[in-house]
Write a protein that binds this DNA or RNA. Structure first.
Lengths: 208, 208
DNA sequence: ACCGACAATATTGTCGACAATACAGGTTCC
DNA sequence: GGAACCTGTATTGTCGACAATATTGTCGGT
């Protein structure tokens, strides 16, 4: 319960970094060597990550990296749509002046990144914006669910950020969210966030 | 991974049945005797139930039943509001004629139960209605999250069903959901569901 | 050459024993 | 008398060994 926490963390980070291919088998002994831990710790980590939805296990057949197909990615994003909508609503209700200024700053930086064609920078700003909104909303349950869902989306999230021209579309959606939150307009904030994520769903479907 | 599955199931059922008080310590040895299992199985079950949010564990201090306060119950229900809204929307988009007939039947039974003052019967019908909507929606991710949240709410759910006069109010909200789904009106179905759960949140806050 | 049964191997499942840690009660020192 | 300390006990954390099961490879028969 101390060693396994370390292994769980490292293994999760490795999976999120994409070091394992989907459906790749995770043999316990190999993980023991890779993370220099006992089978006990590895086993506990695998169980934790199964609950996290990152790996799947079958009795006597071991664990493998869970493959998230496009259909499931769409479902995940649909849930994200409504839960992030709730977060945006709460953010609009709770935002203070300092946080509003930080939001506006991210908006400006996003426009600059798009103008300069810096997709990596824009992707970072995107993550920071959503993170800041979660911080402002302070809704533990909603934030926890988003974190949970996000872990299963890494692969598709990466594919999405590579779609050319997406940042040009989404920057205006992001700006609409920022404006609504700064204006303390809860309904508009939720609507803007949902509109944004609906467009993410369409982009997801378009990848195939 | 076969014995621990049994223990996990039985322990979870026992917790949901309310056989353990909040913050009650769960000593591993005692659980071994109670469920006639090894510490290995009990331990795995506790880890699984920790991920489920039903128990909390501290290093070297063991596990206890997690206490869900009113604030957290409100947060949980807020998430339920938007996710069940998504489910109602999907149900309206996917419902077939047989399912619509089943929904209408539950609606009639609800009115009858309220008229007869049968609160237990009404509570059962309430559970069946939400379950049927989930079946119709066939949205695995949303359904999974609702199941997850529901497990943490059992105690408050019970308290809610005991509030006198609540069924008289909620029966009309339930009917509005049923009508919208049968009419295949996705927007109205989501709105009706959210309005219903907003009133649940108000009732929750009123308990204290 | 193909198919089935059987043996060998690899991998996971289970357990009991021991170590490490936290908690409670009593004891000593100031 | 109070507080810090120490010690005993209860409980959890960790591990290595063994059992159970699935998978792979081999061999003989047709």
């Amino acid at each position: 319960m101390v060693a396994d926490a370390r292994v769980t963390e490292e293994l999760k980070a490795a999976i999120l970094r994409g070091e394992f291919a989907p459906r790749q088998r995770l043999v316990e002994i190999e993980l023991c060597e890779q993370f220099d831990a006992s089978r006990f710790a590895v086993r506990a980590a695998l169980q934790a990550l199964e609950a996290d939805g990152l790996v799947e296990r079958q009795r006597n057949r071991g664990a493998r990296i869970r493959e998230i197909g496009i259909d499931e990615a769409v479902e995940i994003t649909q849930v994200r749509e409504v839960v992030e909508g709730l977060i945006a609503r709460r953010a609009a209700e709770r935002v203070d002046d300092a946080e509003a200024a930080a939001l506006a700053e991210i908006g400006r930086a996003m426009h600059a990144a798009v103008a300069a064609g810096e997709v990596g920078e824009y992707s970072d700003l995107n993550a920071r914006l959503h993170q800041l909104l979660r911080d402002i909303a302070r809704h533990d349950k909603a934030n926890g669910i988003i974190a949970h869902l996000h872990g299963q989306m890494v692969r598709h999230q990466f594919a999405l950020s590579r779609v050319p021209g997406r940042s040009k579309v989404s920057v205006h959606q992001h700006q609409a969210i920022i404006d609504a939150v700064i204006a303390r307009d809860a309904d508009a904030a939720e609507a803007a966030m949902r509109a944004h994520i609906v467009s993410v769903i369409e982009a997801l479907r378009a990848i195939v």
